[in-house]
Design a protein around this nucleic acid. Structure first.
Lengths: 163, 163
DNA sequence: TCACGTAATGTGATAATATAACAAAACCCG
DNA sequence: CGGGTTTTGTTATATTATCACATTACGTGA
């Protein structure tokens, strides 16, 4: 399951299954939060899940437009912002891109590993990193509300391929 | 000295002194690396040091143009990219902005604390965070080359002011 | 010192990313 | 149904970043 395989972007897996599961979780999360997973929002999430990689807002927009939704930037940005707000997707600032959250149900503070070889983006568990970050901040009297941690490097397969 | 006060963005200090010192270090670092701290590059660094906060490329460009340098975007981006490459400045992706490095001589992997109240940006020591990050990555077989860690929150003074 | 290759700069054009503002439609709740 | 709120669509524009190419400055070795 996605929750148990944080490196799933770097390893083969039953993708249709992990997509369907994430959608179900998304429904539940939205119901719980009392917000609406409308058609555009749901479709935007599906697009991110199907791609299984980081996508720019304009790429998502293109897909949405092809599915009969509006074709102006705010259509995509609004849907994506909603998903990010609800923890169903994440924004990768380094790439100016968005990616579906691979385990939205868990309370988490993810870190992202971006492969420069194949552009895959993995969401790794960040509790320890976040702990170190909170500690460093508190020593300066700074209170962290949210953080983004994004690392560039080489994933296992690309490393192997290069060797 | 700047090296001993990583939270200097949040605390009063002898700013003229920390600026001058950083410039001297920059000279030394460039000489060491065999690269040229040309007038635009040097001036760009001075601008960032004087501002003592994160600045957008176009803000820096405006200042450069006022000083007689070119007034097209590449002028600023090239100078800023150079500074970042040499470790004399950092890019804050979250803000689409750049900030002078407060201790360029130290080998370091900085983390940034961005105050949402006053927009101050502090560069904090990130060794422990980086350690946790490397550990998390290595568990997935991922090799990190570089990372950016940016936290949003509230600095000591803004916290106090709000209370 | 001067010819040559390389690095750096200036400039115009344009690409890519993101938001503002407002009208129309859909939804929710009484 | 009626009235307030949320969501969507659309136009327009702001902001950030890069490409391409001509020109100038620099550094090095003959």
């Amino acid at each position: 399951m996605a929750q148990q395989d944080p490196g799933c972007a770097f390893t083969p897996h039953d993708h249709a299954n992990c997509t369907g599961e994430a959608l179900q979780q998304a429904e539940a999360i939205c119901a719980e939060a009392g917000v609406r997973l409308t058609p555009v929002r749901r479709r935007a999430l599906e697009i991110l899940l199907e791609a299984h990689r980081a996508m720019g807002a304009y790429d998502v927009l293109e897909r949405l437009a092809a599915d009969g939704f509006g074709h102006q930037p705010p259509v995509a940005y609004r849907a994506l912002d909603f998903l990010v707000d609800q923890g169903l997707a994440h924004r990768i600032r380094r790439l100016n891109a968005f990616t579906a959250c691979t385990h939205p149900a868990d309370a988490h503070a993810p870190i992202f590993l971006i492969c420069e070889g194949c552009n895959a983006v993995a969401e790794a568990p960040g509790q320890r990193v976040r702990g170190a970050l909170d500690l460093a901040a508190s020593e300066l009297g700074f209170a962290i509300e949210r953080a983004n941690v994004e690392a560039l490097g080489t994933c296992p397969s690309c490393r192997e391929a290069r060797a």
